[in-house]
Structures are given as structure tokens and as C-alpha cells.
Design a protein around this nucleic acid. Structure first.
Lengths: 218, 218
DNA sequence: TTGTCAACTGTCAGTGGCTGACATTAGCCT
DNA sequence: AGGCTAATGTCAGCCACTGACAGTTGACAA
């Protein structure tokens, strides 16, 4: 009766599905509470109670209170990095970054929205930017992600990140643009995925021509 | 008997001096413990006990555990901002920044060293860079300081930070260089103030000519 | 189907960061 | 000297987080 040949994942059993549901519920409940009454004002006990699990269980899914806030970002970033790794090596670096972002955003429409509605994600973004402790965490995460991207870009081009400054510079510029795009989206009223796609695309168009000189010595 | 006409400060009484001593002792003890056994591994109780005050008193001097780590940086930054404000308006922006840094470092030799030995300060710097929670806090503080500097630079030049991108760009470049200089100093073995002065100066020399075009419309 | 194993969860007790309330001490000022 | 007020100690309590132990529940083989 059961089909034991799924495409890639090894058939998630009942246990795995249950775990996933609990995790998703915790994220949703946490973000809902955080955005409604504030991050500091929300207790882990409240979150756990909303999902009807023990406080201890919360900490079995998330190492700390901050982690649940960035769970969605984690998914998006992981997807982005995967896409980036999958881009053909022949593609110029900025083009690869751009394509990866776009593909990632498209997938988010399906994958993420099933966990957390897009507008909740947007409200969370605003909450992060207005909570000192989360701003700090966000900055740290950003620098770590930048470093990862720089490493990937360098490998694509066969360069050494420490010897050649161009990967880090490109990634810095790219990240700066992405950051501004995210900010503009967060301040706007359009919570759709299409909106952030649009904004990102137009912003990337601006730096594109300016940087996209031929890297690889011909 | 008492001289009621000090130059600027209104004659610190016994109470004030005592407070200052307690605060300094707390900072010294905290940094000493942090650098020796680690930040997370050190308890507020330990710090308080080392200075022979109650835990509650610690929290009357510092809002939280992180604050004591950055107390010295706070002094340095405050001094730097003061110097920057005092620079003549005729000076080109980068020159003003450079002069302010140099003067600040010179003062640190006297002012800060009396609170915390320079080598302890250097060890603290290394500890911060290797403690995730402190890295995050450090990044947030840095962006806030950058914003303040950008505001000051903009005012000097009679510009609007939101309308003209140049202040923020200059400050970003300046901060980047300062950051690298700090890193290089932290990795080196020379804990003297002269060393960091030297490093800073040489690094600033590099970007100087590149950016120092005439800003003010002549 | 059943029984075993391992994973998931709840409970409990405890640590450490942090705060409010209240009493006590100690510098300041007349 | 004595009143005022700031600084401190004490205590009780909240909340984030953790280890230990026990109970429950999927997974999997006999």
C-alpha cells in the first residue's frame, strides 16, 4: 500500500511528521506571540502552552529563545546556498547570486508559506529590527552568512578568499543591496512574495552593470 | 580650606571617588575573570565577590553582564566623539576623523590605563572576538557608533545624512579600516598603545589619498 | 501480533541573569 | 549634631536554560 520510493527523502514516517508539525507549530506560535506582544514580553512557557507541549520540549527543538525567531530565515538561507551551489560554474558570480536569490524566493512561496504565512514573516522582520537583542543576533548571522557566500563564490572562481579581496568585496556589495531591499520591503505595505521579488530584482539591477566586469582572465 | 574652583569638574567628593573606585574595580575584576576562565563561565557573583560588594550592587553599576565588557570601549569612543566634535570645521572630514582617533589614543594611554592595563584591554578584545554573544553585541555597538559618526560628519559639512550618501560611505570605509587595524593589533604581540597607534596610522594612510577629494563645492 | 529498542516527551530540581521592594548605612550639608 | 539623600545589602521572585530520570510512543523484527 505505502509507496517506499519517494524521489529524494527516505519516506518520512509518522514520528518524523509529528516532529515536523510540532516544530512548525512552535515557530508559528512563537512568531505570533512575539509580533503581538513583543519579544521580551513573551515567555517560553506561553509559547509552549500555546502548542500544548512542555517548556522542556521547546528547548529540545530550539537551543534558545532567539533561535526560533530566525528559524524561517534559516530555511530561506539554506535554500539560497543550495541554489547557489547548483549554479553552473560558467555563470559570472553576480549572475549566479542573483539567480540563486530569485529561485530561492520562488521556492519560499511554496515551502515557507506552508510553515509561516508571508505576512507573519514580514511582521517578524519588523519586530527583529526593533528589538536590540535581535538586531545584534541578526547582524552576527548576517556576517556569518556573508562569509559562507564569499567562500562559495571564491571556490566557483578558483580563488583564495584571503589572497584575493574580490569575493568578499562583491559579497559585501551584494549583501548591502539585499539588506536595503529587505528594509524597503519591510517598510512597505505589500506583504506578498511577488513584492520582495520585485524589489530585490530592481535593486540588483542597479549594481549589476557597475560590478559585472570580466573577472576570469580571458 | 577646600578649593571650590576646580577647572571643569565640580570637585568630586569622597562619595563620588568611592563610586568611581568601585566601578573601576568591578571592571578590572570582571575583565580579569572573563579573560582567564571565559565569559560564560564567569558568574556575576564571582565578580561581585572579588570586589566584595553584593550582586545587586553590580547591577546598579551595569545594566547587564555584557555592559561591563564594553565599559572601556565606551570610554574610548566617548573620548573619540568629543575630539571629533572639537575638530575645526575647516578640516576635511577624513583628516578630522584621523586626528580625533590619534588624540583619543594618546589620551587613552593616560586615562584608560589607570583603570585597566593595556594588555588586559587587548586580552579582552580577543575574548570578545571569540565569544558569539559578545561578537553580536560588538557588531550592534559598531553600527550604532558608525551612525553617530556619520551624523557628526554630516553636520560638519552641512549635509543631510539621508539625502547625501557620502557621509555614511566615508564613515563605512573609515570604520572598516579601523576594524581591520584593531584586528591586526589584536593578533599581534605588542600590547602597547604605541603599537595600535602605529597600526592605525599606517592603515589610515592607505585610504586617505584615495578618498580625500574635495567635498565642499568650492 | 507482539515484544524489544530507541526516540520523544514530561516532570522536577537547580543554576544563573536580572529586578523590585524595603531596610540600613554612610557621605553631604546646614 | 542632626536631617537629607544617595549608595548598598538583603530578600524574594521571574525567567531563560540544563541535567537527570521516568513514562510514553513510534519503528522494526521475530
Amino acid at each position: 500500500m505505502t509507496d517506499p520510493t519517494p524521489r529524494t527523502t527516505p519516506a518520512p514516517g509518522l514520528r518524523e511528521r509529528k516532529k515536523q508539525r510540532t516544530r512548525d507549530a512552535l515557530i508559528r506560535a512563537a512568531l505570533e506571540l512575539f509580533t503581538e506582544q513583543g519579544y521580551e514580553e513573551t515567555t517560553i512557557d506561553e509559547i509552549a502552552e500555546a502548542v500544548d507541549v512542555s517548556q522542556r520540549t521547546f528547548f529540545r527543538y530550539f537551543a534558545n529563545k532567539q533561535e526560533v525567531v530566525f528559524a524561517v530565515q534559516d530555511m530561506i538561507e539554506a535554500r539560497f546556498l543550495d541554489e547557489l551551489r547548483a549554479r553552473p560554474a560558467a555563470e559570472p558570480p553576480l549572475t549566479a547570486l542573483r539567480s540563486a536569490v530569485m529561485t530561492a524566493w520562488d521556492d519560499i512561496g511554496q515551502t515557507i508559506a506552508s510553515t509561516v504565512p508571508v505576512d507573519l514573516h514580514m511582521r517578524s522582520y519588523r519586530m527583529i529590527e526593533s528589538t536590540p537583542a535581535l538586531i545584534a543576533a541578526h547582524l552576527r548571522r548576517s556576517t556569518e552568512l556573508e562569509e559562507q557566500i564569499a567562500q562559495l563564490v571564491a571556490r566557483r572562481e578558483g580563488l583564495d578568499v584571503d589572497a584575493d579581496p574580490r569575493p568578499r568585496v562583491l559579497v559585501a556589495a551584494f549583501s548591502g543591496v539585499m539588506r536595503v531591499a529587505g528594509k524597503v520591503w519591510g517598510e512597505g505595505h505589500d506583504c506578498s512574495v511577488a513584492a520582495i521579488r520585485e524589489v530585490t530584482e530592481s535593486y540588483l539591477d542597479h549594481i549589476g552593470p557597475a560590478i559585472e566586469t570580466h573577472w576570469r582572465r580571458g
